[in-house]
């Protein structure tokens, strides 16, 4: 029973990530940030979309709402959030010349 519950939970996280990747690709979000990645502010599918999909899924699952369909919806919403809202809410800072 515990193993079954874990399989469902792990599958739900996987579905959330996969759906965020698929919708991200459809929305033409870049797969990876440009190199050097550690200095890039580009919002990509691998980072932060997939990471946010995992985080949002964990929040929703912990609130007691779970299942594969819920996971797929979270993935879709995360991809839309990354594409249309993230850069507006938390934009890249403008560095002043010194």
């Amino acid at each position: 029973m515990i193993i079954h519950a874990n399989v469902i939970l792990i599958s739900s996280y996987a579905v959330a990530v996969i759906s965020s990747i698929v919708v991200g690709l459809l929305l033409r979000i870049p797969v990876l940030p440009e190199r050097p990645m550690r200095q890039s502010w580009t919002i990509s599918i691998v980072f932060p979309t997939a990471v946010l999909a995992l985080g949002f899924s964990a929040i929703v699952f912990k609130l007691g709402i779970d299942g594969l369909l819920v996971a797929a919806i979270i993935g879709i919403i995360t991809a839309l959030f990354s594409k249309y809202l993230l850069e507006r809410i938390l934009p890249e800072p403008v560095m002043e010349e010194s």
Binding site: M37, S40, W41, F47, V51, L54, G55, A58, F61, L90
Partner: peptide, 25 residues
């Protein structure tokens, strides 16, 4: 779950602090 939630929240914290967020996440 806690670690995954923390990773998402740290990402938002990073962006608020003018940091792209790779290290924290």
């Amino acid at each position: 779950e806690g670690g995954l939630i923390a990773a998402a929240l740290v990402y938002f914290g990073n962006r608020l602090c003018a940091d792209p967020g790779y290290a924290g996440t």
